[in-house]
Design a protein around this nucleic acid. Structure first.
Lengths: 334, 334
DNA sequence: GAAGCCCGTTTTAACGATATTGTCTGCGAA
DNA sequence: TTCGCAGACAATATCGTTAAAACGGGCTTC
């Protein structure tokens, strides 16, 4: 490996002069500078980022830590990357498999040292565990779980989104709307917040709230959603609308409905959450709550950037606004 | 920051003893060992990975460098992660936006130092550029572009997959099959290899090959595919089957067909490539070539692991076999 | 009883960069 | 002539760790 001192020897100068030429810290005389650059070129020298990091304490790298790489998180990551790069830093992704243990390791003191800042998409850790994190580097949390107050946090307007979607279907005639993939518990998590929105929409419309219509699912996959919905259909519970907690779930619902000959939106209206790219292409187009990836990304990176620049104000808790994208799966959509 | 020498002082031993306790290199006496561990606990010491890396020349980290984080690459990444972790290493993802420049930077000497090995999904670099890469660390290439012989490389059986899909539709009655998203040129890239498979299937069946049925698209998005197919329909070119170069394209095709009232598979059979998860849920289920993510991941990680372990045999060029998953979008599927 | 050896531990020397301080030269002002 | 000062470069210490060699005391071995 070619080191700075190789270059220095080749150019007949000291290592610091090489460093000064390359980093433009202290001024270097033109002839010396030229010799150094020539030597760099001749030897093909490139800086050792690890050594720089050890000495300078800066990596120019930000980590985005997500439960998995696909679907929602992949899309968010693609939004975040250019924003981080706009600040002259690199973005790397790490994966936790949504396990609390992996998330804890990812924000351990040891791993945090590798980055100037971290965006952590919380899936497994509860507030109590999070409060035990020794936060030696700027961390901004993403996601729909509750987090301790002292963390910067960006989350979606889950309740409002679910309310919008449900109210829309009520307005378009649905009276028995399943909350597929939602949960009844009161922990502030994505699935319960969205259920609350579903509930609020019912109350607002003066409709009764029937807990039998809240249908949790075991895992958040399309396949589980499909089979769960088939069970509901088989049970004979009458319904004419489905609010799916995520578009992945909505997709499973689409498959289940189609296989039972139920027409969307004529027999059953359907709305999802996440506005995945596929949702606009699956006939008849799935009405979905747009989570505003760009906005989330901008808020998150903005907060992180402020911290990395040394900002030390109180932690901010951003609730990113969402909007409803109406498509053919609800009546009146195209 | 708590360092090893802080721990050493606390425990009344030298730093090397601390290191030996923590890394279990040289044996340490039980009482000393206990004192060290107590000190580690008391001070909350965690190793500085950067310093370790600088000294030991090992990061225990593998990078997967992809054009973008979503869809195909996100799914592959999720397959690769556990395999890398099984070898006791971490996986991180980086993104290149499919730009040749970013790909080149990602495998620069400087950046390669940060990892023990790299999996590079080639999208922007041509063989000539790749041959200029100074390969200071093990690199395994992924993807459908041609690459220089001296690189380990894992690619899909693109031609065979396209042939399978097309032959299947021919067998089930289609006679005029669009090759949507394929290209006519002869560079060995994904889009041309898949077109060749489409062509071979026609020849095998004794059907004429009509270049008008090869329909390239400007960008590989569902939206572009949708509008391109609408143009084809408007042009009046008669067709009764579509081989879509990717499932993302197939998805756009589904939307276009639906919006024109064309029924799948009755009026038009449709087959895609990639077997994305969504493809099994979009009614009536999209027949697709399964790219065998698991197999690709296993081959790639296997090759990389061998190199990282010091293996120095000749470069291997693996063509991972693919298979056809028949669904409702072709006749006879369910 | 000298030589060798084992064990547990310390000492020394890197790894490759950067921050800080120091040295030398040349030039202008007093 | 002397002093001061700035500019250009060099020397040295340092970041936190690990590899390798040195050490020293007790024990075996002949």
């Amino acid at each position: 490996m070619v080191t700075m001192s190789d270059v220095a020897r080749e150019a007949g100068v000291s290592v610091m002069t090489v460093s000064n030429v390359l980093n433009e810290r202290l001024p270097v005389g033109a002839p010396t500078r030229a010799r150094v650059l020539a030597a760099v070129e001749a030897l093909g020298y490139e800086v050792n980022l690890t050594a720089r990091h050890l000495r300078a304490g800066r990596t120019d790298t930000v980590a985005l830590i997500v439960p998995s790489f696909h679907d929602y998180f992949g899309e968010v990551a693609d939004q975040i990357a250019p924003l981080v790069e706009a600040h002259g830093r690199h973005l790397v992704l790490e994966r936790t498999s949504a396990s609390a243990q992996h998330e804890m390791e990812a924000v351990s003191v040891a791993r945090l040292q590798l980055y100037d800042g971290v965006l952590l998409s919380v899936a497994g850790l509860d507030p109590e565990q999070l409060s035990r994190v020794r936060t030696s580097k700027p961390i901004v949390l993403l996601g729909e779980r509750d987090v301790p107050d002292h963390f910067d946090h960006v989350r979606l307007a889950n309740e409002e989104g679910a309310r919008l979607a449900t109210a829309h279907m009520i307005e378009r005639g649905s009276r028995r709307i399943l909350a597929l993939g939602c949960t009844l518990d009161r922990t502030h998590m994505m699935t319960s917040d969205r259920r609350v929105g579903w509930e609020v929409a019912h109350r607002d419309a003066g409709l009764p709230v029937d807990d039998r219509y809240v249908v949790p699912i075991a895992t958040y996959s399309s396949e589980t959603a499909r089979s769960t919905l088939l069970d509901v259909i088989a049970s004979g519970l009458p319904f004419d609308g489905i609010f799916a907690a995520t578009d992945v779930i909505a997709l499973g619902a689409v498959a289940a409905l189609a296989s039972r000959g139920l027409r969307v939106p004529d027999d059953v209206q359907l709305a999802g959450f996440d506005n995945l790219e596929v949702s606009s292409f699956v006939p008849p187009g799935i009405t979905s709550v747009d989570p505003n990836h760009r906005g989330v990304a901008q808020h998150a990176v903005g907060l992180l950037h402020r911290r990395m620049a040394g900002g030390d104000g109180p932690a901010e808790h951003v609730v990113a606004p969402v909007s409803l994208v109406v498509r053919g799966s609800t009546r009146g959509g195209r």
